[in-house]
């Protein structure tokens, strides 16, 4: 269970360009569900997801995961929680160019220093699961948008996270690929993962595989706005 209590986030505080991206969100998120945060650009979806995923801290308010307060943890522990609990799929995939698909997938595990044979085996298993085995030794810049997205999902799952966070995952995909992606996210839910998605794509938030839709507007839940 993820609990958010009056979470706020401000950028450039005290300067002329101060921006309140999230202005007080209180929310409980159930495990093993596909939850979509929808809303227009600038509504605070990505900022909220980055705070839930321990990529950044709230300016005020509290975020806890299964009773453990995340928002107060020092950076080192936040990183540990991030890499063991969360997997991230970014809007622009953020794969590292020049490396192969396999190397990109294994990358989040490097600081944990697992046995190299085991790590390769895990990465190949994920690539097979997502239909990317044939591309394992291709450089990521040769991949199509859909393939890059699937490689990014494999990378997000390499450390066996419980929660997958996807930020606008269909922004760079055509309709067929977008539907395919939603199907993949549903499969992850079937595997017991919690999936949190930020999207303003109707193909995503209107999908039958989505368990819950949370609407944001101007940094607040739509019902509070």
């Amino acid at each position: 269970m993820i609990e958010l209590r009056d979470v706020k986030k401000v950028f450039n505080q005290g300067r002329g360009n101060e921006l309140w991206a999230v202005r007080g969100v209180t929310l409980d998120l159930e495990p093993r569900q596909v939850t979509v945060f929808k809303g227009p650009s600038g509504s605070g979806k990505t900022t909220l997801l980055s705070m839930i995923g321990a990529l950044s801290r709230p300016t005020s308010g509290r975020i806890s995961l299964d009773g453990t307060l995340l928002s107060n943890l020092p950076e080192r522990f936040m990183t540990q929680v991030r890499r063991s609990t969360f997997g991230f799929v970014f809007q622009r995939f953020n794969l590292i160019r020049g490396l192969t698909v396999l190397e990109n997938v294994m990358l989040p595990a490097y600081p944990l220093a697992p046995d190299y044979g085991d790590l390769r085996h895990r990465a190949h298993a994920l690539l097979t699961q997502f239909g990317m085995e044939a591309k394992a030794s291709d450089k990521v810049e040769w991949l199509s948008g859909g393939e890059a997205q699937r490689a990014a999902i494999c990378r997000a799952l390499i450390n066996g996270p419980r929660i997958l966070i996807a930020d606008e995952p269909t922004a760079n995909l055509d309709s067929a690929r977008s539907r395919e992606l939603v199907g993949l996210l549903g499969e992850l839910q079937d595997l017991g993962k919690t999936v949190l998605v930020a999207s303003h794509d109707p193909l995503v938030f209107e999908s039958a595989r989505v368990s819950r839709v949370v609407e944001l507007r101007d940094g607040l839940l739509a019902e509070d706005a």
């Binding site: 990183t79 991030r82 991230f88 490097y110």
Partner: peptide, 18 residues
Amino acid sequence: DERREIGILKSIGWETAD
């Protein structure tokens, strides 16, 4: 590109020390 790469590594679970 290098700054972006460092950002990606940190977002996928690398510490500053790594």
